[in-house]
Design a protein around this nucleic acid. Structure first.
Lengths: 230, 230
DNA sequence: ACGCGCAGCGTTGTGCACATCAGTTTCTGC
DNA sequence: GCAGAAACTGATGTGCACAACGCTGCGCGT
């Protein structure tokens, strides 16, 4: 996971972005579960830097709500209560729809290719379910789809909200509160529907499909597995 | 402006919040115009701290898009181009309406009192216009009104978007592209309408009023002063 | 006169040592 | 034996010195 590329020809900003993205992914993929203490010294040693730049990354993660530092105690991965989760999902619904309405951009060939590859990987995952691989695929697709809007602020906020709730959904999978196979199938159907919408050039439809699936995903997570399917 | 309170009985978090809020206000009120270089050493000396905690504040401001640091050059107050401004305002419109729809909260007596005092100050400003005082009043009212929604993520994003565009509006005032007297009058009317809506308990109406005024404000700024009133 | 290079200067980024704080353990007085 | 306080431990926060980097201006060569 940790890419220790040679530090040569890497600007300070690049190093920061790498550490930030890497730590963020670890938190979102539950490599660091909520409540875990992150040791500044250990992480600094692992990434081959001193505490100073690493603390910058942790401060950013704290501003994003993923960790919380307490003086004299430690830096801990945050958890999200049900109330905050509900509010965040409500916002995500609205933002998803806005994605296709405010400043829509036609899909690039690169995005089309990414979606096609994602659909293939999703089909593989339907045959052999894997929570972590699915979560990673889900995140990649979400971030890639942000290129469908030119509104940078909208992209930024949608990304932040997704990052904030992704690990909670994954936690539900591990807790068997949602059925991984069902989630994977629904995700595959979502991609296929989005591909169809994009093929016809209807960007708002693609956004509405995403909004519908976010809504359904949250409902499934709230409701839990239906009795009788255990 | 700079409150140099005794550093005793102040936790690190408090100091950070103070510096952050203070510098943010200076940028939003154009004490530091776009393009201005912020000297880490000078600011650290002014606030009586070392560069380390001050750099933390600057990093936060950079993540909020208010400043930009370049290695070996300096930290500069950012500017906002017309395209980004348009997109941000479009988002602000949507968020303002959502404020009254997603998780509305009845106004507290404190908010009512604040609005009444703000209306008084606005009436004073109508008689004696003052760009900076008006901008500060506008900001205080906006931030106070955020208590009308319980959706914390919505509050956070709405605040960030406002902070990001406030100084551009103030710049338009100084550039005489909008008429300060007209803006002040419109603002006073907005407060009065909001007070009426809140008095009847219609929170969605209060949000729609805000949305309408944000929209009108942006239109006035885009259009510029009507010819013949010069 | 013009172009190229290099050295100096100021700025942000990094490393390291120490201060500060919270939780825990241990020691002491009763 | 027990309660309370002080010392210990390990964490984050801070200050300071140096490294890395970009810009500028001077000087040398052509």
């Amino acid at each position: 996971m940790t890419l220790d590329t040679p530090d040569s020809s890497l600007t300070a900003r690049d190093r920061f972005d790498r550490l930030h993205a890497d730590l963020r992914a670890r938190i979102c993929l539950l490599d660091y579960a909520p409540g875990t203490r992150l040791s500044e010294e250990a992480l600094a040693a692992e990434y081959g830097v001193s505490r100073t730049p690493l603390r910058r990354v942790l401060a950013r993660l704290e501003s994003e709500g993923l960790v919380q530092s307490v003086h004299g105690v430690g830096t801990f991965v945050t958890d999200v209560d049900i109330e905050e989760l509900t509010q965040t999902y409500q916002l995500r619904l609205e933002l998803a729809e806005m994605t296709g309405r405010l400043s829509p951009v036609p899909p690039s060939p690169d995005l089309i290719a990414r979606l096609a590859r994602a659909a293939d990987r999703a089909r593989t995952l339907v045959a052999a379910p894997d929570p972590r691989a699915f979560a990673q695929l889900n995140m990649e697709v979400f971030l890639a789809r942000l290129s469908l809007t030119a509104n940078e602020a909208l992209r930024e906020f949608a990304e932040r909200l997704y990052i904030r709730t992704a690990r909670i959904w994954l936690k539900s999978v591990f807790a068997s509160r949602v059925d991984l196979a069902e989630e994977t199938e629904m995700f595959l159907r979502e991609i296929e529907e989005v591909e169809a919408a994009l093929a016809t050039g209807d960007l708002h439809a693609a956004a509405l499909i995403q909004r519908a699936h976010i809504s359904m995903s949250f409902t499934r997570m709230k409701t839990g597995r239906r009795p009788g399917r255990e």
